[in-house]
Write a protein that binds this DNA or RNA. Structure first.
Lengths: 233, 233
DNA sequence: CTCTGCCTCGCCAGAAATGGGGAGTTGGAA
DNA sequence: TTCCAACTCCCCATTTCTGGCGAGGCAGAG
């Protein structure tokens, strides 16, 4: 354990993560171990021991938005056993079958991790065995896995800062107020009234915020401002 | 330390948190200790040892959206010393002065905590002393404070589940796709084209999503869907 | 002192979104 | 089988948003 942490701390490239996760897979003697970062801008980064064919298929099919593991963990705080997720939808079922055909174990345990600016990542361990064996495994290693998950994420954050610092030009106070009120459902007219300014002035703020955020329209601007933590809704 | 964790684990009401945090303040012999939850719906919950007058003023003045501690931590992953935050804006300066006048120590260390559905909370310890003393204090207790912060948050989450489960009616797959594409800046026409459906059909999805999300307009709907983790952008 | 960023205001025309109406299919649940 | 939720399509009128034009004041940085 300490050995792994030391390795992570001296890692200088993401390849190191890949090596560590493979080592961990062998150490725990499980089928698969995966770290999967779903960055706030919709890109993904992952390392792990899944079959590359499955990874490619996952990306190609856009499974990110279907995968009940991602969706379920995104809405949870605590680690979760795959059995407790919602697999009832048709999309989820076909996804599960596709995964099984690519050799993904039916037991899994995933740890959600959150970082700055809405960063979200998953640390997953998966295996094929019966429920009892799996339950005792997760029970035994839960604490370590959680720690590992967070160390992994911190290392990834350290190594990949080039991934989020999309030049986040700060918004002016008025722009922040504007975006915030828009995010809670006010129309432009209502926002203008609330801020006691003309609707035209308001438009200037929206436009400048849109420009700073690199957004194509108001909705996009609000979404980006939220995703980047520039407004708190 | 273990004593505190035990107390938290058997807590059955938020009052218990208040008691624990007061105990901690005395234990660490610092001026103030605060847990501050900024829930995803904009409400707040906090417990701590700040002067109630200051808390009232904080709420009344809407300092939540000015406080550099909140803003700074929201965009960070690691705990941060207040000195490293951005106090340059005018609003921040007048906020700082106001805080000082209410007896808030000028040294502070805040730990950002994140939870499901965009939950965000802060665990802060604050004191009045010189920089060297403060540096050695935080250096010495950093690990414990981080642990405490997360235990506090987990307890608060456990005790206050009634705070977020705003009946989150699930969105249908098409609705999710629609909201997601809108969030990344597509216009209705572009979304319709992308999904290969008529623009009118698209409208039906937007409207039903808006209804399910209790949103007043498209921008609001996207913001809520994001805040609730129903779409991942 | 100039320059830049922020805040404020006005008018107009075209593009986009919204609200309300109606209508048909499909597939799964009761 | 019947019912419901999800998905698909069309028209019309109104409201709202967006883009482009121009303008002034005020504070802080260089």
């Amino acid at each position: 354990m300490d050995d792994v942490i030391a390795r992570l701390e001296c890692a200088e490239h993401l390849d190191a993560l890949q090596a560590v996760i493979e080592w961990l897979r062998d150490y725990y003697a499980v089928d698969d171990m995966v770290y999967h970062w779903v960055s706030s801008n919709g890109e993904q980064y992952g390392c792990g021991t899944y079959d590359p064919k499955w990874v490619a298929r996952y990306l190609e099919k856009g499974y990110l938005r279907i995968d009940p593991v991602v969706i379920g963990c995104y809405q949870r705080f605590h680690p979760v056993d795959w059995k407790r997720l919602d697999w009832s939808s048709k999309a989820a079922r076909s996804f599960m079958q596709d995964a099984a055909e690519h050799g993904i174990g039916h037991q899994g345990y995933s740890i959600p991790i959150r970082g700055p600016n809405g960063q979200f990542a998953l640390f997953t361990v998966s295996h094929s065995c019966d429920d009892d064996q799996w339950a005792s495994f997760t029970e035994l290693n839960r604490r370590d896995l959680i720690l590992l998950a967070h160390y992994f994420n911190q290392t990834a954050l350290k190594l990949e800062p080039g991934r989020k610092p999309e030049p986040t030009q700060p918004l002016s106070p008025r722009e922040v107020e504007t975006m915030t009120l828009l995010a809670v459902g006010y129309s432009r007219a209502q926002v203008a009234e609330t801020l006691a300014i003309s609707e035209h002035t308001l438009r200037v703020y929206i436009e400048s915020a849109r420009f700073k955020l690199g957004a194509l329209n108001t909705t996009h601007a609000v979404a980006r401002a939220m995703a980047r933590g520039q407004i708190i809704v």
